[in-house]
């Protein structure tokens, strides 16, 4: 509907607006692709020490300069996408899937179950996310499976809260009452009646949650408590190159810009898909 009005419009401004709308989703897709293929697309071996100075600036040979070992920064960032995007995607999927499931169950079962789960998870929200992350890492260490679980656990309560409120609204509608009167099972009502009607909010929440997860994972790695060497996500890349900051090395700022490009692109993509108000329900 709106696409026909846009394509009917001509002129440089319309083209500019249209490409502008495409750029953000394109960046998101690019980083998603890099999470899978970044290691092979990289122009140099991400771990290989090149014939270059330490903390070299940007050049034709090394587009984003070199790091503290003289390794190619572009290759390291492309290879690091696997960890930043991969871990974040896994953790977000885990948090959203369990949040949706618990929210659905709470709305369909109601009563004591709903009250108990809601109380418990709401109380967990009162632990600031970075603090929660630090305590979990202090207790369980920082291997990648632990990181995925840690991030999922931290964002599960917020996820549950928003999905429950959406599910409760759907569960109050007439067709759910009809299904109950038909004698359908709770599981059937959850999956076939309520779930299909909350796809939009769930997707918007997934995107926003993904941003928080990326930022928290990067922060943990930046503190040296996330992805451990020799593996390196973008937060670790910033951390290991901090000594280059006084020389103004691009090695410090480029991985941080990669993170920002991902989070901002996801943010604006959600805005254009679901409208700006989608954000306000979260947190």
């Amino acid at each position: 509907m709106s696409s026909t009005t846009i394509s009917a419009r001509r002129g440089p401004m319309a083209i500019l607006a249209r490409t502008g709308r495409m750029i953000m989703p394109a960046i998101v897709l690019f980083w998603l692709a890099m999470a899978f293929f970044g290691y092979w697309v990289a122009p140099y071996d991400p771990a290989g020490i090149q014939d270059a100075d330490l903390f070299e600036g940007m050049s034709r040979k090394f587009w984003l300069g070199t790091d503290y070992f003289g390794r190619d920064m572009l290759s390291r960032i492309l290879a690091g996408a696997r960890y930043t995007v991969g871990i974040s995607l896994m953790a977000t999927s885990l948090a959203v899937a369990s949040g949706v499931l618990l929210g659905l169950a709470a709305s369909a079962i109601g009563g004591l179950f709903d009250a108990a789960v809601s109380r418990f998870l709401d109380a967990l929200i009162s632990i600031p996310s970075k603090m929660f992350g630090l305590v979990l890492v202090a207790a369980f260490g920082a291997s990648i499976p632990v990181l995925v679980l840690t991030l999922a656990v931290i964002y599960l309560p917020g996820c549950y809260r928003i999905n429950r409120s959406v599910a409760v609204n759907v569960a109050a509608l007439d067709f759910v009452a009809v299904a109950r009167a038909r004698g359908e099972s709770t599981l059937y009502i959850m999956i076939r009646e309520i779930l299909p009607n909350m796809v939009g909010p769930v997707l918007a929440d997934f995107g926003l949650r993904f941003i928080y997860v990326v930022l928290l994972l990067s922060s943990l790695s930046f503190l040296g408590l996330g992805v451990q060497p020799p593996q390196a996500d973008w937060g670790s890349l910033v951390r290991e190159n901090m000594p280059g900051l006084p020389y103004g090395a691009p090695a410090v700022i480029m991985p941080a810009i990669a993170i920002a490009s991902l989070t901002i692109a996801v943010n604006l993509t959600i805005d254009s898909l679901f409208g700006r108000h989608a954000r306000d329900g979260v947190r």
Partner: peptide, 29 residues
């Protein structure tokens, strides 16, 4: 404000160091 909340704190911090400590030399890093 949307940009500011989607950017990691250490990007802000290292950009500030780059500009004010490395380029302008107003403050120590």
């Amino acid at each position: 404000t949307v940009l500011a909340v989607s950017v990691p704190e250490f990007l802000v911090a290292s950009a500030a160091v780059l500009v004010f400590a490395v380029q302008l030399r107003w403050v120590p890093a």
